[in-house]
Amino acid sequence: MLQINDPIIQLKGLTKCYGKKKAVDGLDLAIYKGEIFGLLGPNGAGKTTTILMMLGLTEPTAGTVHVCGYNATRTPIDVKRSVGYMPDSVGFYDNMTALENLLYIARLNGLPDYEIKKKAMETLALVGLAGDLNKKTSTFSRGMKQRLGLADVLIKDPAVIILDEPTLGIDPTGVREFLTLIKQLSRQKGITVLISSHHLHHVQQVCDRVGIFVNGKLEVEGNINTLSGSLMDGDSYTTTVTLTGPIVQPWPHMSIFSKLNAVKEVSVQDNDLVFTCTRDITPVIVRLLVENGCDITGVHKKDYGLDDIYQKYFENNTAETTTHEMSASFLQRTFFKKQPEQ
């Protein structure tokens, strides 16, 4: 059914409306086997809705979802057999121990009874919960629950893992360990991973490819280098040089740099000189400064990281939310005005 080069997750024209609001709007996406794909977007962008549609937990208004060659809306059971899903706020039965919780999930997946216990122990050891397997899950911290959630996903030997906000609420060390583990597993077993997050730095560490998802639409898709490259095309290169002491205004050497072709603008802030150029001419700038007797303590070339990507693509969205808020407050005001009249 599924050809080797076919994408393992394929969304075509996927749309989901809640009333008049379009949560997901004509989404097309293909994810291939063994990839780690990051679905990035601000809160309320429609990430979770998309994931729910991939698992057949909600019906799309239009479009199709195919996971592992199965239609997720028509045959969700087949999809769920090969997909492990970790929801953003994963919950466990508090009156059961970690092991019991895991065994329950394993049995629901139809794992044979004679190997189930051994496998559960192995999985718990893999996620680093070997010491806590007989503790009630009500005593678990958020990070431990997250690990147990991963064990839940791994025990059924999935072909695809979908993680919804997996790094939410874990401390930085925990996040790094968690992501390293996911990356290792994906590389070793060839598991396809889809991570949804609004935390760019976490996703940046592990993802092969990211898609930026705003207001139900996939704005841009590709690996992080291409994304930052595309950002730099229109923009200019910025180099910041820090000198030992405060720079006197007007700066005596200004004319030397303004003469250079590539330099568009030079600005002075306390100890810093900020050069905005059309090309990357950092070495030239540094050499000229040294020749003119300036003592440099630091040079920083601005990189376009995910923060800038985030800024660029999510800006529109924040603008829109503000207007929403404004209309809401407007409504409120009229409502309150009306009341005394009655």
Binding site: L57, I77, D78, V83, Y85, P87, F92, L108
Partner: peptide
Amino acid sequence: GNGTLIRIMAQPIY
């Protein structure tokens, strides 16, 4: 409320 429903529904059961 406990978040277990979605976890169970994500398993291959009807």
